[in-house]
């Protein structure tokens, strides 16, 4: 199988994401101005500052030609993983519920955090154990997940929260410690922490690899 990793002007973590994907499958960078997804089986929208994030995080990238194809791909059930800026873009695109607000401290924070796995019956977490803590770094200024009360209740009732910050580690002020949510259909998932930076014991933990392996395994199971 092959992952497609999006690159917008201002994307920073696309090569890291590509390297992480290549540990479990093939991977190719896709350019924002193209519409062709080149037959990839899953999409990763990586972190960074697409278009400088100047208007509002993710607000401009959401309208790029490539994103139009990604939105179609997601609507057809293709797996899409959004990391950090990718999560923000997917929220802007309406593919994921809620919005990302500035961190409680209003500062950029780079920190290794523990994430509790809430569900394992999903294409993104099937390689994890229920309740397992994943050690993955987070780094962002705008990562406080928020949804209005009714939407939040819906998201919780549907079991769309796949990862939460472990007790005492929710540094950005996210509602209900939400670190990552999926859409109702369960094929689009976004999280603020960076699993692509947790794939090699040399540079940190390897817990992030489980998310990429989950995507590969879920696709293999459907073939």
């Amino acid at each position: 199988m092959k992952f497609g990793v999006l690159r917008f002007p201002g994307t920073c973590d696309e090569v890291d994401a590509q390297l992480a994907c290549e540990r479990v499958a093939g991977a190719e960078i896709l350019w924002h101005g193209d519409r062709d997804l080149k037959g990839v089986d899953a999409i990763v929208v990586p972190g960074g500052f697409s278009y400088g994030d100047y208007l509002r995080v993710g607000a401009i990238a959401r309208f790029s030609p490539l994103m139009e194809s990604v939105i179609d791909f997601a609507r057809e059930g293709g797996p899409v993983l959004g990391i950090c800026n990718g999560f923000q873009i997917l929220c802007e695109a309406g593919l994921l519920p809620g919005a990302l607000l500035p961190n409680r401290t209003l500062r950029f924070v780079c920190r290794q955090v523990d994430l509790r796995v809430e569900r394992t019956d999903t294409p993104f977490t099937n390689a994890c154990e229920q309740g397992e803590l994943l050690s993955i770094p987070a780094k962002h200024t705008t990562g406080c997940w928020y949804a209005p009360k009714q939407l939040h209740e819906q998201v919780e009732a549907n079991g769309q929260v796949l990862l939460r910050y472990a007790d005492g580690q929710n540094f950005n002020g996210s509602l209900a410690d939400v670190a990552g949510v999926c859409n109702e259909a369960g094929n689009v998932f976004g999280l603020m922490p960076h699993p692509e930076h947790a794939v090699d014991p040399l540079t940190g933990s390897t817990d992030g690899l489980k998310l990429f392996a989950s995507i590969r395994d879920s696709l293999a199971a459907h073939v």
């Binding site: 973590d13 890291d16 950029f108 780079c110 780094k139 692509e196 930076h197 090699d200």
Partner: peptide, 11 residues
């Protein structure tokens, strides 16, 4: 240093 990204580029 927590205000700086020290992990990007995976090196």
């Amino acid at each position: 240093f927590e205000q700086y990204d020290w992990i990007v580029q995976s090196r």
